[in-house]
Design a binder for these strands. Sequence first.
DNA 1: GAGTGTAGAGCGAGCGCTCGCTCGGTTTTT
DNA 2: AAAAACCGAGCGAGCGCTCGCTCTACACTC
Lengths: 252, 252
Amino acid sequence: MPEVDYQRFRERVAAWQPELVREVFRQHQHLIRVKKEEVALDRLDLILRTALDISNRKGFKSMSVRDLSEATGISMGALYAYIDSKDGLLDMIMAYGSVAARWAVQVPDQVVGARSRLDWVLRSHLYLSEVLLPWFFFAFMEARHFSQRAREQAMGSELWMERLISECLEEGNASGEFAVARPDLAGALIKSLLQDWYLKRWKYRRRNVDVEAYTGTVMEFIEAWVLPDRSTAPGRVQTDQSSRVNHEKGSV
Amino acid sequence: MPEVDYQRFRERVAAWQPELVREVFRQHQHLIRVKKEEVALDRLDLILRTALDISNRKGFKSMSVRDLSEATGISMGALYAYIDSKDGLLDMIMAYGSVAARWAVQVPDQVVGARSRLDWVLRSHLYLSEVLLPWFFFAFMEARHFSQRAREQAMGSELWMERLISECLEEGNASGEFAVARPDLAGALIKSLLQDWYLKRWKYRRRNVDVEAYTGTVMEFIEAWVLPDRSTAPGRVQTDQSSRVNHEKGSV
DNA sequence: GAGTGTAGAGCGAGCGCTCGCTCGGTTTTT
DNA sequence: AAAAACCGAGCGAGCGCTCGCTCTACACTC
């Protein structure tokens, strides 16, 4: 039934993930003093990973450049050949995830129908946040420290994701696949369920809940709400409209 | 149907809210140089409010004590008569919300039955987070900067709230009021819906969604999942068990 | 293949600045 | 006039960032 599973998603991501740092390097090359691409890529990758790691433990603001220097083993001077400033490092980190998101979540043409599209969008988002967990956590937690321009961009992409979900719901309402009262609010609530996966990871790790189990429960939760009819038992099949209950809107 | 609404909740809170700062003052009196309680309370209240305001805009770490001094109009020296250190200020802020939570969310004895209890717990949490929004936002965003002891306490209270929800669900499963597959995971997911209200406030404010509208939608969302049967129309009445559908667990 | 010039990459002590916090003196209250 | 509260210049530590220098790899000369 699902349009994609985690295993296949990982394989698809593995194909372009090494190119991510290269893309970031090229976007910011005018600010980077290191000339040779092949020399730069490994260390840039190390810098970005380490910066995310330290920032997610003590906050970007609290991470001193000396901390980063010690953790990467790259001297202060050399570090500043890769970044033009601490804020520039933040820009590169954000670019890293933005590029990944752009490459990962576009819905392919062969996925048609509201329910399939919703399934695809939600799963892609969850799976990507699993692969790039440190980045998603960082982007959420540090967003309010961004410059106004960057913050508005972050808010915009949050709203974009929501509208993507809401549009699926509206499309489903129109086709009869779904029956949900407020697609706008529903989109917001569904997004918060996706977010919990990377915001509260410690909780799920402690309980041995993996991304597939989480995704499964979330999809059930959502479908219980948006489908016109349902049975709470997992593995159900009712997707046709014939089994819908004719609910009485006017009842007190 | 609901055990409590926002209006009544506010009235109840208004009765003890002025006593909150007094409680915080007394808990930390040994660290406060200002002797006279009546002199101290107003300024302590101002300090806590302003600190929350600045912290929520630029982060607790980035808020300098000079910022706080200028914003409150209290000189550096006088400020340090109310707080023993910046970390001490953080302790007082956390105490403020902890006391409020303790006073606000205990379930009264007259609320019986799983569905009523769940309703009461969720609404109380949502309403309290509306009244103390700056505190809830602060507690979530700054938790990772706490000392290990404080962080474990925060994690504990997060898990406590979840277990409260999960227990309602389990109780409801046992009594037949609910039929939810994984009460533990469900508790976590439901909590994330409550959290979205204070984490993404800008979004809901922009859409003119108030706390009652949000609460209503969330409660519908949740009940669509946990109730054994449902109708998507708002204002429905089916709460008795006679209308339950006998769902077939084994169906493919 | 040994010697040499050079550009790229790396290094870390030190600069100017802001931070949390203090303390001797002043104003207000009782 | 004593006690309580308030004030803000000044302290050492730590911050982001720089800059004069060294090290390394490789093309070129003889």
